[in-house]
Write a protein that binds this DNA or RNA. Structure first.
Length: 274
DNA sequence: TTCCAGGCTATGT
DNA sequence: ACATAGCATGGA
């Protein structure tokens, strides 16, 4: 994969490890919209990009190209990651299917909110709710910035409920309050264990959601979130059932430093079978 | 109608 | 430390 920066766009070519559909629809992000077959709106924090497929390359139109170079993790060599993971039969199939996956560098607040809503929920409903929350943020003309923490703290439990969050509404009100009482910059310096334990103190955050926040909000690729789909994958590989926490530990022992990447390829492939 | 979705909290043993 | 009920919502 190669990319070229200019003032108002990024052009991505040699697409052996960049596919916008794989990237956005592999379950890591809820803040995008598909317009037609190869045309996506992508929102992150107060930024927006329009992604178009044309002439065997992608054009990422944005007023802030360097933000989206980081967001799409364009300086990481995913061919190397895939080569290292290709020593397992299950992974070979999964990588062949989701060859263009990349792990996004998302905004922490959005990841925390999104994955609290994700508990026992459907991806399409989560996306819908996140869109409604975004519309409470600053109007940037042709899109909305995601609400700042200050604005999020003004949203009532009933408002969250009206946006379809169900019983999770009170978690969201509480967690917004919790997040203002800490210095979020400092949490990026925590080691994995300390960070995970802190995340588990957040309202509505259990083991699985904590692992998702570690992976998608902090890019800690030694975490392996286990949900209903990964449970099925685990059974395919190990032929037994156990608690999700133990499955996660087994999978981390198996995939090591590349756990998070492996998890995304496997999740995307398994969910495609439905 | 019942089941399910990127599970968590609360409440038991 | 582990097991289970209840939980909001809407699509299949």
């Amino acid at each position: 994969m190669n990319y070229k920066l200019s003032k108002d766009k990024i052009i991505v070519t040699n697409l052996e490890d960049f596919n916008i559909e794989h990237i956005l629809e592999c379950g890591q992000v809820f803040t995008y919209n598909k317009n037609d077959k190869n045309d996506y709106d992508v929102y992150s924090k107060d930024q927006y990009a329009h992604v178009i497929f044309k002439d065997n390359s992608y054009i990422i139109e944005t007023s802030n190209p360097s933000y989206f170079v980081d967001y799409f993790d364009l300086d990481t060599d995913y061919s190397q990651i895939k080569n290292k993971l290709n020593n397992n039969a299950n992974m070979i199939e999964a990588i062949k299917f989701g060859y263009g996956i990349r792990i996004l560098k998302q905004d922490l607040i959005e990841v925390i909110i999104g994955f609290i809503i994700s508990a026992n929920n459907h991806i399409d409903r989560i996306k819908n709710t996140m869109k409604k929350i975004r519309e409470l943020g600053e109007n940037k003309g042709n899109y909305y910035a995601f609400p700042t923490l200050e604005k999020l703290n003004q949203i009532s439990e009933q408002q969250f409920r009206d946006m379809g969050t169900g019983y999770r509404a009170k978690y969201l009100v509480n967690v917004c309050k919790q997040l203002t009482s800490v210095n979020l910059e400092e949490t990026f310096l925590f080691d994995d264990n300390k960070l995970r334990n802190w995340l588990l103190t957040l309202c509505g955050v259990g083991p699985k959601v904590a692992d998702c926040i570690l992976l998608f909000g902090y890019h800690r690729c030694t975490s392996f979130p286990v949900d209903t789909w990964i449970e099925k994958v685990y059974f395919d590989i190990f032929k037994e059932k156990k608690s999700r926490i133990k499955m996660s530990q087994d999978l981390i022992n198996y995939f090591g430093e590349l756990s998070g990447y492996a998890q995304q390829y496997l999740f995307f492939y398994k969910r495609s079978e439905k």
